[in-house]
């Protein structure tokens, strides 16, 4: 759709997405979570896949979403591995002390 303004393309999409087996971006939004978790029935998945084929905005949105989820996961893992929190000795001793008290009271 080279040469058409974004507004015109959106107007065409607005009409196109109201056809049978089509959904608007706004409706697409409601199914993104299930789509990302691959939990949609085949028919709904087909509808969403078709929408993605036609809609670069939703494609880009979804791609950026996937990257940001991966970033959240990987950043937390990297921080845990490369910058581990030092466990204070007083915490270890407090845990061991509490366990001793618990074990003694269980015996009594």
């Amino acid at each position: 759709m080279m040469g058409l303004s974004k507004r015109t393309i959106n107007r065409i999409h607005g009409i196109l997405f109201k056809l049978p087996m089509m959904i608007t971006c706004r409706s697409f939004e409601d199914f993104i979570l299930a789509y990302l978790d691959d939990k949609l029935p085949p028919r709904q998945k087909f509808v969403l896949d078709t929408h993605l084929e036609l809609c670069p905005e939703c494609r880009d949105y979804l791609r950026a979403c996937r990257i940001s989820i991966e970033l959240a996961k990987t950043s937390a893992r990297e921080a845990e591995v490369y910058f581990p929190i030092e466990v204070p000795e007083k915490l270890i001793q407090a845990v061991l002390e509490a366990q001793k008290v618990q074990a003694t009271s269980n015996r009594n």
Binding site: N10, R26, S27, C55, E57, C58
Partner: peptide, 9 residues
């Protein structure tokens, strides 16, 4: 989204 329900990205 715009008035057509299209995503603004």
């Amino acid at each position: 989204f715009d008035e057509n329900g299209c995503r603004i990205e």
